[in-house]
Design a protein around this nucleic acid. Structure first.
Length: 554
RNA sequence: UGACUCAUGGUGUAACGGUAGCACAACUGUUUUUGGUGCAGUUUGUCAAGGUUCGAAUCCUUGUGAGUCAACCA
């Protein structure tokens, strides 16, 4: 009933007005990646924006690969991009490629030449750079600027036919070498590149530049709202110029500020470097900010979508706290994952008054947040593994775990009282000795004893073994790109910690790749894709919030 | 010595000339067989100076600060 006016971001406001005014009956947006790398969290923001817009308003979104540079693009990237978008939960109306428009783009270029608005230039890249001038001094005209239309038409077709070497000629727009916008100083439209293209093969040896492909592709597809990041603002002048001169469908470009996340980098070049120089295992290394990395890390797609929606879009510089993403990850996983017990840093706990030959199965709820999740049977015996950090040699104030004389509940089992412990000559604790309270059985406790602490455990005779990989942030500083020197200097040397032998409860030996769990008190974990039944591998997705750690830190 | 963007708590984002709100983070308390979760609450903000107005985060002026632009990359 109470229809609250939902607040719109600035692009949604523009669209709402365009729809209301009748400028468009429906809108068309596009997500236009270049297939030269894997998608990352920054792309997720753009994907959620573009696809989200046409969920909210009538219209549709296309996927268009901006593949105009054959030397950097590969089909492997095309495939990963499609997989990542689908995983995020979006489906495009049409799958399109700028390379499909090479013929049309060539015709567009010829139109400009015939209108006297483009010319073939023999200048080298160095000469062109000099002609450009600087932001504060005007440029100079190329000596080729006044070639006749006939000569330009002839030269351009010979460029296409492969008569000239790479770099020997370009096609340039004839605009204004004194323009305050550097990009309007006769920008290059076409270059010669005798390289095979991932889709068109050797059919072409001239390729359009971004500026002479993107806006034109938008126009061909009748994109109504072409959304890109702020660094393309200076390109909008040319975007509009070309549409006007070509007299084609007037798409419009809108810009928002790219989303940056702290403790990571999201430049494709830097990410590629991290992979190539083996600072990480692969593009989908769980420490990477790529969508495939986050998927392997165990981040649910819904968490990424909620994150993107929450941070919204704007036009100002930003550095979003990765903690917000982690919040959404925990929020979803808390509701959906089964609780299980795993001991990462084991120490033996022996119960002296429990029959040594006995094993009993105890029912433990799978997820207290989900009444329908049921329960499972967990074996219990007199020799258990517990977490080394759950024991202290001497009792302290506010310590709710084990210490000599202290009592805790073993999750889902009994209350135990620590009676003794054993140390070796070096002072390492070898074993904790306890007595259990038979009347304190979980769910049937008649002991009347109240304890503050509950700890997790695994029965030694029934335990399975797994490798557990603990991940931390990839960089030690919030913004590696703004620090002095090389960003690689700021890599966190402890971003990956491998525990080769953790003890896990037997139910976990049937886990499936990608299946997520909460290891009680330790965090959320997911079975890695390289896991086998002989060698189980769990990735820690994210820790639980830890108030105890905060108290200790004080 | 240019053009173009931008400026709201620690972070991100609302407000469309009329009560500065939301989320995260932080901090209290409470619940809890996870020091998790849930619940209740607290703290913290309009870059500055002028101006217009009954009234300014919002409009105007000036200043300050940050970012972008000179790839045959996208």
């Amino acid at each position: 009933m109470s229809e609250h006016m939902e607040s719109l971001n600035f692009i949604e406001e523009i669209i709402e007005q365009d729809l209301k005014s009748g400028k468009y009956a429906e809108i068309i947006t596009r997500f236009p990646p270049e297939p030269n790398g894997y998608l990352h969290i920054g792309h997720a923001s753009s994907i959620c924006l573009n696809f989200g817009l046409t969920k909210k308003f009538p219209g549709h979104t296309n996927l268009r690969f901006d593949d105009t540079n054959p030397s950097t693009e590969e089909t492997e990237y095309v495939d990963s991009i499609k997989e990542d978008i689908r995983w995020l939960g979006f489906e495009w109306k049409q799958e399109l490629y700028a390379s499909d428009y090479f013929g049309q783009l060539y015709d567009f270029a010829t139109i400009l030449i015939k209108k006297g608005l483009a010319y073939v230039d023999d200048s080298s890249s160095e000469e062109i750079a000099i002609q450009k001038g600087t932001p504060t001094t005007i440029g100079t005209n190329s000596p080729c600027r006044n070639r006749s239309i006939e000569e330009n038409v002839d030269l351009f077709s010979r460029m296409k036919n492969g008569e000239f070497a790479d770099g020997s000629k370009t096609l340039r727009a004839k605009i204004d070498m004194a323009h305050t916008n550097m990009l309007m100083r006769d920008p290059i439209l076409y270059r010669i590149k005798k390289a095979p293209h991932h889709r068109s093969g050797n059919k072409w040896c001239i390729y359009p530049m971004y500026d002479f492909a993107h806006g034109q592709s938008d126009s061909i597809e009748q994109i109504t709202h072409s959304i890109c990041t702020m660094e393309f603002i200076p390109h909008r002048d040319f975007y509009d110029w070309a549409i006007e001169k070509l007299e084609i469908y007037p798409s419009h470009q809108y810009e928002f500020a790219r989303r940056n996340v702290n403790y990571t980098v999201t430049s494709k070049r830097k990410l590629l470097q991290l992979v190539q120089e083996k600072h990480v295992e692969s593009w989908d290394d769980p420490r990477m900010p790529t969508l495939s990395g986050m998927r392997r890390r165990g981040y649910p797609a819904i968490a990424i979508r909620n994150f993107c929606e929450r941070i919204g879009i704007g036009k100002r510089e930003n550095l979003v706290d990765i903690g917000l993403l982690e919040f959404f990850v925990r929020e979803d996983l808390n509701k959906t994952t089964s609780r299980v017990m795993a001991v990462l840093d084991p120490i033996q706990l022996s119960i002296t008054n429990y029959p040594s030959e006995q094993t009993e199965l105890l029912p433990i709820e799978n997820n207290p947040e989900d009444e329908t999740s049921g329960e499972r049977q967990v074996p219990f015996s007199n020799k258990l593994w517990i977490e080394r950090e759950d024991f202290k040699e001497e009792m302290e104030k506010k310590w709710f775990r084990l210490a000599p004389g202290a009592m805790v509940r073993l999750k889902g089992a009994y209350i135990v009282k620590c009676t003794d412990f054993k140390k070796d000559a070096q002072g390492n604790i070898l074993e904790i000795i306890c007595e259990y309270i038979p009347e304190s059985k979980s769910g049937n406790d008649t002991s009347g004893i109240q304890v503050k602490g509950t700890i997790h455990w695994v029965s030694q005779t029934n335990a399975a073994v797994a490798e557990v990989r603990l991940y931390d942030r990839l960089f030690q500083v919030e913004n590696p790109m703004s620090e002095e020197g090389d960003f690689l200097d700021y890599i966190n040397p402890n971003s990956l910690q491998i525990i080769s032998k953790a003890y896990i409860e037997p139910s976990l030996s049937h886990a499936k790749t990608g299946q997520a769990f909460q290891f009680i008190r330790k965090g959320y974990f997911v079975l890695d894709k390289n896991s086998t039944s002989d060698n189980l591998i769990f990735n820690r997705t994210v820790t639980l919030k830890d108030n105890w750690a905060k108290v200790q830190g004080k």
